[in-house]
Amino acid sequence: MSTSPASESPAPDPLLTARDVVKRFHHNCVVDHVSLDVNEGETVCVIGPSGSGKTTFLRCINYLEKPDGGVISLAGTLIGYKIDKGHLVELRPAALARQRAQIGMVFQHFNLFPHLTVLANVIEAPLRVLRRKRSELEDEAMQLLADVGLADKAHAAPSQLSGGQQQRVAIARALAMKPRVMLFDEPTSALDPELVGEVLGVIEKLTAAGLTSVVVTHEMGFARHVADRVVFMDKGQVVETGAAQQVLGSPEHQRTREFLAKVL
């Protein structure tokens, strides 16, 4: 091992690090000391049975849920806290918002803004948060919409789109902030089967282009094909993590095997 080229240059610092993240709801430990490293350009898929805490863990990463323990850092900066004289002090809302702007999130139920057109959905945050010029943003947004195959829907209302189209707009909206990492929370589980492919296709293209992402998914075929690493969670804990082939092909743990036997 010591002669392998990888050990000569030090391993790059992971872009996103979660250390011992704990989240409880009424004494019910939903996320139980979860740790995860995601390197730049890496795609990590999180799988696991319903209620295993995948969504909650993802929401802890961008502080939509405040973790009860553990720390999360993005590019070496703590999320939600600053270090002040040997203490962790919770960040002010403005500073927290700036951190969130670097983390894109795609939700299970799209959560598009219903009172804004597709194009306005995409440019709203960069316009108000990054205070960039509207004309520039519109050109960029049209390009993004074209990338997700929806350039012709730019002036439609979200309610006029199919679920798959809405989710692709949600992806474009998150990308418009040029996030360093993207979090996808079961992006296709609210979709009709024939619409799943179009959304996963977009995500696959993005990850192939080098987007760093954490994807919670029930689509094992997708995970196997796209993930650099797969994390299996159960009852709030990470049971097994490793290369996609290894975790999905020849899992070490009994619980992983049982789960895979059920879903495949």
């Binding site: 809302p93 918002a97 700036r98 969130r100 999130m105 939700f107 959560n111 945050a125 909206r173």
Partner: peptide, 9 residues
């Protein structure tokens, strides 16, 4: 959730 995740104050 969506607004916060996009970094809106």
């Amino acid at each position: 959730d969506a607004a916060k995740a996009l970094g809106m104050r």
